[in-house]
Amino acid sequence: MNSQLTGQYIPGTSIMHRMDARAKFSGFLLLIAAVILTGTIKGYLLTISFILIIAALSKLPPEIATGSVRRMLPFFFVVFLLNVLFFESETPLWQWGIVTISIDGIAQGANILLRIVLILILSNVLTLTTPPMALMAAIESLMSPLRFIGVPVGDVSMILSVAVQFIPTLLRETDDIRTAQTARGAQFESGKLLDRAKALPPLLTPIFLSAFKRADELAVAMEARGYRGGKHRTKKASQPMPVSGWLALLLCAALCALQIFLF
């Protein structure tokens, strides 16, 4: 009950908040491609500044935009270390058995680390500035061509929407049950792996039971409200993408192209 959920939408009025969700989601995919394509120092300077500008435009407090990054620091350290120690290089600085330290290895470690951090910041900005439903609608509209090969896009998006809607409830419930079992003497924090595994049934069993019960009740409520499959519903209104959305996509595509052709 005391921590801000990672990636939970924070309402706002920044440029990033107001941008068309379809443009934001497609741009996000393009930028991930750009990050992966980036390979040189000059290229990184460009990509990093591009992403930092996006983060600044979102007007999110920096410590929240980078929240998940800081939480994963120990993981990053391990990833970096593995790359530095085990990258096979022809010009090692120091070697002992299979452990090799080289400039290439350090560069490789930094490279991977930088990519993960940049992608995490991007996805933070995306989910923090986009209401889940708008994101769902964007994904649905991008998936809509799949209709022609027989995919029930309407039902799939309904399932996604309901699932997303349930996440806060289930997280709160997990918290409640963990607290209740702790009060009964369960120990979820004790060190040994085996103890931790043993502590799981008191947590997981009630959560699963409750999730099934909730799903069941929701299904009845949906039926009572006249749901009989995606086909029988009012069609989604498709609005054309605004100019600003195309512009943003163009910029992201340009960054990709620059990474491929210039650097």
Partner: peptide, 14 residues
Amino acid sequence: KLGVLFQFPESQLF
């Protein structure tokens, strides 16, 4: 020494 009974305690049965 301290028992705590939360709201809807039946949900903790497992």
